[in-house]
Simulated scan of single mutants.
Amino acid sequence: MWSWLLHRITGVILAFGLVYHFFMMHFIQPEAYSYEAVIQRLSEPSWKVFNIVFLLSVLYHGFYGLNGLVTEYVKNNSLKRFLKIMVFIIPLGLAFFGFKIVFL
């Protein structure tokens, strides 16, 4: 029950996050695209929080969907077990690198 609800919540976060991202990155002044402007914006704590929430939402939403596909369509039990382990491990690795990028 909670995983299904979290999947829906992350979908809403992704919808609003994408609109916000596209507005900030594609509809503002051209000088906001400079390296210095982007680095300055990414050094602000609010942007770090936005990026982490967005990253975790993307990972959970996407890999929860992949887990559903594996559960429904893969019939071979050993392959299903392997894929379920990968669906758990890969997002952890991606989250690690995402945190590393945002905070370092």
Rank of each mutant, 00 (worst) to 15 (best):
G65W: 08
H26M: 11
E36V: 09
T71K: 07
L94W: 10
S43T: 06
N51M: 14
S57N: 03
V87K: 09
E44R: 15
S34G: 11
K100H: 08
S78D: 12
G11Y: 02
G68M: 04
K84L: 08
A15D: 02
K100G: 09
G62L: 10
I9C: 01
H21L: 14
F82D: 12
N76W: 02
Y20V: 14
K48F: 01
G62D: 10
I85A: 04
N76M: 02
S78E: 11
G93A: 05
S34P: 12
M1K: 02
H26K: 12
P91Y: 05
S3I: 02
I89T: 01
I89C: 01
S3Q: 11
E36M: 04
G68R: 02
F97L: 13
T71S: 10
V74D: 00
M86S: 06
Q29L: 13
G98Q: 03
Y35G: 15
F16R: 08
S78V: 13
N77M: 13
A15W: 00
V102A: 04
F23E: 14
L55Y: 01
G93P: 05
L5M: 12
N51I: 14
L69M: 14
Y33H: 15
W2P: 11
Y64F: 10
P45K: 13
L66E: 04
G11T: 08
F63T: 08
F99G: 14
S57A: 13
I52W: 00
G98L: 04
F97C: 14
I90P: 06
K84I: 04
A15Q: 00
L42C: 06
N51V: 11
F54I: 06
